[in-house]
Amino acid sequence: MDINLAPQLDRRFAALADPVRRAILTRLAQGEATVGELGKPFGISQPAISKHLKVLEMAGLIEAGQAGAARPRRLKPEALRETEQWLAGLHALWVDSFDRLDAVLAQLQQPDPQG
């Protein structure tokens, strides 16, 4: 359902749909790693790993470092901060709303001034 999410966010969730890609990200959460290092635990070919890395790069989740020919991959913290931001925004929206709802409910329960 591509239309349901903002395009970048949608790519991001789609990239996470694959268990190998999720495992790659979990590995990168511990620090940067080369393509060879990333492929080892999965026992899959380097072209297959490269394809997964490409999807993760397109989704803005990882980037390639500049260090030498190995160009180790690492997580892009910005991607995670964006997610953190909308979760924080959602939290703020409901906390602000609930504070006002408290007041509305108190008002509804006030005894009738006539009575």
């Binding site: 349901n4 749909a17 999720r22 995670l80």
Partner: peptide, 16 residues
Amino acid sequence: PLGASAAEIAAFIDLM
């Protein structure tokens, strides 16, 4: 989010 499966979202949270 509509359109993202619970597993994908959970993966994101784990990642963070």
